[in-house]
Structures are given as structure tokens and as C-alpha cells.
């Protein structure tokens, strides 16, 4: 994960001036860089982001309910040749229903999003073949916490826009947040519980925790 984080940060670094207006580069700015992308699909779909894996276009779901970046083979993309059965990187993952499923850790030469390349990205190849597609892109997998937790991520599903902000740890600039949110907004703390995110809520006065933010029905 640290390698992945370093690689992503390296790819993002230095791009702020291309997108983020100069006045945001103030002394107390918490934002290092940002990348925007147009979401694919519609309102009933889990958010889908266009990516390129080894220069081949594909779509990946986005969800905080998954830990790694999981992919499946599709008619136009096959990762089998990247699998080394003898490697320690062959193992099992637990699916949504807690059942063990064989999986392989694979490394791809390039993983691109928003026009920027991340070299030697680690993905987890699941069994089975994906047959879904959206707007001409094969939908081959899902991006989880290993990627998303490195950023402040702005989701505007209705406007089909997603923005990844590389932000400084322990930094909060209310003016920047107001500018990003673009209107009256609400705030709530997030607790990290075993790498998953929790948000406190009250239903009719009873306090409880929504233990993840899966962005999934």
C-alpha cells in the first residue's frame, strides 16, 4: 500500500497549478494537487470512473467498502498472463457474503486516471469474467480504500463529476472547503475503524454508526 500511495502521490504532485486557481495556493492552503474526472453511467449506478490499464480504456466502480483495486477479465482485457501461480501473491479474498474466493495479486505497467500515469500499480485479479460495459468502456472492477483513502474525494453524482484532492495531513482550511463545496454545507467527523470509515448518525434521536461509506445501494 505504501508503494501504491507513493506512486499515486508522485503522479499527482505538481499538477495543482494546472487546475487549482492561484489564489488557492495561499500560505495556508491544504491542497497540494487535484484531478477531476467525469463519471460514467447514470444515477442508479455505483459511480464509475474511466481509467486506462496498460493503455487500454476501462471503467472501474468506486467504493469505500472494498479494500484494494479488484479487477476481472473481460472480452477485451485479459490479465491471466500476469498471474504467477507459484507466487506468494496468489491467495484468497472474502467476497461480500464472507465466502473465500481465489485471487491473484498482479502488477500492471501503467494505471492511468484523469490523464496521469501510475507505474507498476498493484491490482487484485478475481476469478470470473465481467460482461458489463458502459458508454463503450468494459466495466472490469472496483477501486477501494487503498486508492481512495489517499485523497479527499469530491463526489457530485448528479453532475457526473469526481475530483481527487491531494491534501495535507492534519490540515483544515474552511475557506477552501467552502470554495470546493460551493454553498451551504454540513460537516461530520469520520472515524476509521479497521481501515473502514464510520459516520455517526441519529435516527429519530437514537445514536448509531453507519460503519462504512460504500457508495453502493
Amino acid at each position: 500500500m505504501s508503494k501504491w500511495k507513493t506512486s499515486v502521490s508522485g503522479a499527482v504532485l505538481g499538477l495543482c497549478c494546472l487546475w487549482w486557481p492561484p489564489e488557492a495556493e495561499a500560505r495556508h492552503s491544504c491542497i497540494v494537487a487535484s484531478i477531476s474526472e467525469t463519471l460514467l453511467g447514470g444515477q442508479s449506478d455505483t459511480p464509475l470512473m474511466p481509467v486506462k490499464i496498460n493503455n487500454q480504456p476501462a471503467a472501474l466502480f468506486l467504493s469505500y467498502d472494498y479494500e484494494s483495486i479488484y479487477v476481472k477479465n473481460s472480452a477485451s482485457m485479459n490479465f491471466d498472463k500476469l498471474v504467477d501461480e507459484s507466487s506468494w501473491e496468489t491467495g484468497y479474498v472474502l467476497n461480500t457474503f464472507g465466502k473465500r474466493e481465489k485471487a491473484h495479486a498482479i502488477s500492471v505497467k501503467t494505471f492511468s486516471f484523469g490523464g496521469f500515469n501510475v507505474p507498476d500499480a498493484k491490482l487484485v485479479l478475481l476469478k470470473g469474467e465481467s460482461k458489463q460495459s458502459v458508454q463503450g468502456f468494459p466495466v472490469i472492477g472496483i477501486i477501494g480504500n487503498v486508492f481512495l483513502n489517499n485523497f479527499a474525494v469530491l463526489f457530485d453524482v448528479k453532475s457526473r463529476k469526481i475530483t481527487f484532492f491531494e491534501v495535507k495531513d492534519g490540515c483544515e482550511n474552511k475557506e477552501e472547503i467552502t470554495k470546493i463545496m460551493g454553498g451551504d454545507f454540513h460537516a461530520v467527523n469520520i472515524n476509521a475503524n479497521a481501515n473502514r470509515l464510520e459516520v455517526a448518525a441519529r435516527i429519530s434521536g437514537r445514536k448509531m454508526h453507519f460503519s462504512s461509506i460504500p457508495i453502493w445501494i
Partner: peptide, 10 residues
């Protein structure tokens, strides 16, 4: 806006 780095959601 989900800021997992600084544990805040807006």
C-alpha cells in the same frame, strides 16, 4: 467531499 486523510465528510 470525503476527506479520509483528515477524517471529515462535508
Amino acid at each position: 467531499l470525503v476527506d479520509a486523510v483528515n477524517s471529515r465528510m462535508y
